[in-house]
């Protein structure tokens, strides 16, 4: 009886470990407008407190919060996140590595002013990268022309 209970517990534990492989990945993002305004001290919007460390090395002196969010993305499925009226972030979790890192394809697309024959806006890949990310570590993407500054995106991935 005891052996049966232990065997069942072992199977459940193994099933749980295997199930974690298929849990959606969590994608956290923060969009920032970075600019150089000749300040004596760098300025960070208060909403950027969590990502300030990831931005400080970029060399701008002004960092303004644009938008942020967190979504769950299934492996193999592209999640589309509109950041501004021109830029969209696309994240496709590809696999979860044995060491815990999440392999993902990340694109930042930019909408052109022109439209195609059907009148739809034309989008191009401003950046396309495939990376293996340590859950919780920040990936900084930039710099994309935006008004009087640059768009910078801080991306964090984790288990769903």
């Amino acid at each position: 009886m005891k052996i049966c209970v232990l065997a069942l517990a072992s199977v459940l534990a193994a099933w749980s470990a295997a199930a974690q492989q298929h849990e959606p990945a969590r994608v956290g993002y923060t969009a920032v407008q970075a600019a150089r305004e000749n300040r004596d001290e760098p300025y960070f919007d208060t909403a950027l407190g969590d990502v300030r460390n990831a931005l400080e090395h970029l060399g701008y002196d002004t960092y303004r919060y644009l938008t942020s969010g967190s979504i769950r993305a299934d492996y193999g499925q592209e999640a589309e996140l509109e950041l501004t009226d021109r830029y969209t972030l696309h994240v496709t979790p590809l696999s979860k590595e044995r060491d815990g890192r999440i392999r993902a394809e990340i694109r930042v697309t930019k909408q052109r002013d022109e439209r195609d024959e059907d009148g739809n806006p034309i989008r191009v890949n401003a950046l396309r990268t495939t990376s293996r990310l340590v859950p919780g570590d920040e990936l900084c993407l930039g710099a994309f022309d935006l008004d009087q500054g640059d768009l910078v995106i801080v991306l964090v991935m984790g288990a769903g």
């Binding site: 890192r101 401003a126 950046l127 396309r128 990376s131």
Partner: peptide, 12 residues
């Protein structure tokens, strides 16, 4: 785990 690794990147 050594850290995050960028395998490839490109721009259009």
């Amino acid at each position: 785990v050594e850290g995050s690794v960028v395998e490839s990147y490109s721009t259009d």
